[in-house]
Design a binder for these strands. Structure first.
Length: 491
RNA sequence: CGGGAUGUAGCUUAGCCUGGUAGAGCGCUACGUUCGGGACGUAGAGGCCAUCGGUUCGAAUCCGAUCAUCCCGACCA
């Protein structure tokens, strides 16, 4: 194959390749509003699939969904000092309640609001206000709430799915009677994210804790899941925050404990966003377009009738219907498409390759006569022909195998670009070459963090859980007994 | 918000310097030949050249203003 589905290739221009994959798969487009995107049906279907999997996991752990206002009074945000500082610079502010035509007939804002409202960049404060009324006694705890919503963070530089001014997410907000319980909740949700990201999205996730500088504004600790994209840059896939009593104190979430004493609750929040769709594109896709893990793919198999002679159309299509029915009978949840559009076979095949259909099934006279199918899996694109009965019986296993292949490939990509670093010179060398994830002992001192950020554009992604027991002398300061940190360039 | 650039068909764009009211490729529609690795031919639809103003007999083209977008910097799921 010399001609690739996507121009340019990953190697030629990764950023442009990413945009083109999204365009070719028809996932989303830039909206006529600055920094915003239109998520098209193919993209939204992916989001619905992720939503469904996450929602099930949340419900299974006792969380319930609710919906809180889009608008938040400015004074709410103001109640937590770090929180304001973190979000103030990127808030959309609503100041007027109507439009009025001026002398030229141009509509202008009129009727100023007494108190400006911000469009939620996140909902800790407005949910906290509600919690303060809902929580009275230790019997009201834990309070486990999730919200599916859009949020707005006014961004300077935007990219489809990865960074837009408005995006979709879920934000979980919980309140607990003890610090220990809240911390457990933070870690429990982190583990749910890890499981879905690794098992459904087939993206190996590096799990760990954020440093002070990368922590959520107002949190005591922030845990993160970091994925490595094919350009070796890190992408934060989800976060879970232990908020301590900061928001409980700011929003006055108090309860009476067993001993009759008033106590501040301990709260958490955690979220993942439509950015996960961007990570799917950047981790699995290739120079021919979108590649998706079967568990979340919109189309797990597409059946394409190949018709040379119009006289044969009817019988070939009837055979295709039969193949679809038999596959579908093997599993209710299977997503099988039958593409009867009158297009040339090659063109049709390419279209489905670019859209990330997991399995491409071509059926013409040969297959019909021999009761077989010709198929290829999206990640390898190698054709093989199998008897229909055998194919139907093994299709589900084929999906599983592809899911596994994608995960293993992503994992081996990450491992190849992950390196233990033991000298500052090697550290600089590593990032001046190809880069990736650099593991090094680090004293958590903010000065080196600042220095490498300005000199190399490298940040500390997290202190990984997997290496929590390892201690060593800091790479930069030589201070003994420091934790291992992961450094990388990040989106 | 600083530095640089650009606005012409759904998309990518030529034309602008040297004024004479628009050309191409892709896409779209129809028909024909094709069809298991991205077809080709023929015909056709589609643009008051970002907006407003100025210069001129005449402006996509020259001048001014406005708006928008993109790229580079400081911030970010």
């Amino acid at each position: 194959m010399d001609k690739t589905g996507i121009t340019p290739t990953r190697k030629e221009n990764y950023a442009e390749w990413y945009q083109q994959v999204i365009r070719a798969a028809d996932l989303a487009e830039n909206a006529p509003v600055r920094g915003c995107m239109i998520i098209k049906p193919n993209g939204y279907q992916l989001w619905e699939t992720l939503q469904h999997k996450l929602d099930q996991a949340f419900k299974a752990t006792g969380h319930v969904n609710a919906y809180f206002p889009l608008f938040i009074p400015v004074r709410f945000l103001q109640k937590e000092a770090e929180h304001v500082a973190g979000f103030a610079k990127e808030c959309a502010v609503v100041t007027h309640s109507r439009l009025q035509a001026n002398e030229q007939g141009v509509l202008e804002p009129a009727s100023p609001l007494e108190e400006p409202l911000i469009v939620r960049p996140t909902s800790e404060t407005i949910i906290g206000e509600a919690f303060s009324r809902w929580v009275q006694s230790y019997r009201d705890l834990p309070l486990l709430i999730n919200q599916w919503a859009n949020v707005v963070r006014w961004e300077m530089r935007t990219r489809l799915f990865l960074r837009t001014s408005e995006f979709l997410w879920q934000e979980g907000h919980t309140a607990h009677a003890t610090a220990e319980e809240a911390r457990q909740e933070t870690l429990r949700m982190l583990e749910i994210y890890r499981r879905i990201i690794e098992e459904d999205l087939a993206i190996p996730a590096l799990v760990g804790e954020k440093t002070a500088s990368e922590r959520f504004p107002g949190a005591l600790s922030t845990y993160t899941l970091e994925g490595m994209m094919q350009d070796r840059k890190a992408l934060q896939l989800g976060t879970s925050h232990f908020l301590g009593q900061n928001f409980a104190k700011a929003m006055n979430i108090q309860f009476v404990d067993v001993d009759g004493k008033a106590q501040y609750a301990w709260t958490t929040s955690w979220g993942v966003t439509t950015r996960l769709i961007g990570s799917l594109v950047m981790v699995h896709s290739d120079d021919d377009g979108l590649v998706l893990p079967p568990k979340v793919a919109n189309v797990q198999a597409v059946i394409m009738p190949i018709i040379h002679d119009e006289a044969q159309r009817e019988q070939i299509e009837a055979y295709c219907d039969q193949v679809q029915r038999q596959l579908q009978d093997r599993g209710k949840g299977l997503r099988i498409s039958l593409d009867k559009r009158a297009m040339r076979g090659g063109e049709k095949r390419w279209q489905w390759i670019k859209r990330g259909a997991c399995c491409l099934i071509e059926i013409g006279m040969k297959e019909m006569e021999s009761q077989s199918v010709t198929l290829s899996w999206r990640d390898t694109l190698q054709r093989e022909t199998l008897p229909l009965t055998q194919w139907v019986a093994t299709f589900a296993d084929g999906l599983k195998a592809m899911q596994q292949r994608l995960f293993e490939r992503a994992k081996s990509n990450r491992e190849q670009s992950t390196q233990r670093i033991s000298s500052v010179a090697d550290f600089y060398q590593f990032f001046q070459n190809d880069g990736g994830f650099a593991l090094a002992y680090w004293s958590e001192d903010p000065e080196t963090e600042e220095k490498i950020k300005s000199e190399l554009k490298v940040t500390v992604r997290c202190l990984p859980q997997a290496f929590a027991s390892e201690r060593g002398a800091c790479l930069f300061t030589n201070k003994p007994d420091c934790p291992l940190a992961v450094f990388a360039k990040a989106y």
